[in-house]
Computed example of a mutant assay.
Amino acid sequence: MLLSISLMFIIGMFLGFICKKIKLPSLIGLLLTGMILGPHILNLIDDSILGISSELRKIALIIILTRAGLGLDLSGLKKIGRPALLMCFVPASCELIGMMILAPRLLGLSLLEAAILGAVLAAVSPAVVVPRMVKLMDEGYGVDKGIPQLILAGASVDDVYVIVLFTTFLGMIQGQGVFVMSFVNIPVSIVLGIAIGLVTGYILSLYFEKIHIRDTTKVLIILCISFILVVTEDSLNTPITFSALIAIMFIGIGLKKKREIVAIRLSKKYEKLWVAAEVLLFVLVGAAINIEYIGKVGPVAVLLIIGALVFRMFGVFICLLGTKMSKKERLFVMLAYTPKATVQAAIGGIPLSAGLACGDTVLTVAVLAIVITAPLGAFAIDRTYKRFLDKK
Results as ranks from 00 to 15, higher is better:
Leu2Pro: 00
Leu2Ile: 15
Ile5Asn: 06
Ser6His: 01
Phe14Gly: 11
Phe14Asp: 01
Ile18Arg: 03
Cys19Lys: 03
Cys19Glu: 01
Pro25Met: 12
Pro25His: 04
Ile28Pro: 03
Leu30Asp: 02
Leu32Cys: 13
His40Tyr: 15
Leu44Thr: 05
Asp47Trp: 08
Ile49Trp: 08
Ile49Thr: 10
Ser53Phe: 06
Glu55Cys: 10
Ile59Asp: 08
Ile59Met: 14
Ile62Thr: 03
Ile64Cys: 09
Leu65Ala: 03
Gly69Asn: 02
Gly69Cys: 04
Gly69Val: 07
Gly76Met: 02
Arg82Tyr: 15
Met87His: 07
Val90Ser: 08
Ser93Asn: 01
Leu96His: 05
Ile97His: 07
Met100Trp: 08
Met100Gln: 10
Leu102Glu: 05
Ala103Pro: 06
Pro104Gln: 09
Pro104Glu: 07
Leu111Gly: 13
Leu111Ala: 15
Leu112Pro: 06
Glu113Asp: 14
Ala115Tyr: 09
Val120Asn: 04
Pro126His: 00
Asp138Trp: 13
Glu139Lys: 14
Tyr141Pro: 10
Asp144Ala: 14
Ile147Gln: 04
Leu150Thr: 05
Ala155Phe: 01
Leu165Phe: 07
Ile173Pro: 03
Gln174Trp: 06
Val178Gln: 09
Val180Asn: 06
Met181His: 10
Asn185Asp: 07
Ile186Cys: 05
Ile186Trp: 01
Val191Trp: 10
Gly197Phe: 03
Leu204His: 00
Ser205His: 09
Asp215Lys: 15
Asp215Phe: 15
Ile221Ser: 02
Cys224Phe: 15
Ile228Phe: 12
Thr232Glu: 08
Ser235Lys: 13
Leu236Phe: 10
Pro239Trp: 06
Pro239Ser: 13
Ile240Lys: 07
Ile251Asp: 01
Ile251Val: 06
Lys257Glu: 09
Lys257His: 14
Glu260Leu: 12
Leu266Lys: 01
Ser267Ala: 14
Val275Thr: 14
Glu278Trp: 09
Val279Met: 02
Glu292Met: 15
Lys296Tyr: 11
Ala301Asp: 07
Leu303Glu: 11
Ile305Phe: 08
Gly307Ser: 07
Gly307Ala: 11
Ala308Lys: 05
Phe311Thr: 02
Arg312Phe: 06
Phe314Leu: 00
Val316Met: 03
Gly322Cys: 09
Gly322Phe: 09
Met325Ala: 02
Lys327Val: 14
Arg330Asn: 05
Phe332His: 08
Leu335Ser: 13
Tyr337Cys: 11
Pro339Ala: 12
Val343His: 00
Ile347Leu: 11
Leu352Met: 10
Ser353Cys: 14
Ala354Trp: 09
Gly355Ala: 09
Gly355Glu: 10
Leu356Ala: 14
Gly359Phe: 03
Thr361Ser: 14
Thr364Glu: 13
Thr364Ala: 15
Val367Ser: 15
Ala369Trp: 06
Ile370Gln: 04
Val371Gln: 13
Ile372Asp: 12
Ala374Cys: 07
Ala378Met: 12
Asp382Ala: 15
Arg383Pro: 02
Thr384His: 10
Lys386Gly: 07
Lys386Arg: 12
Asp390Trp: 08
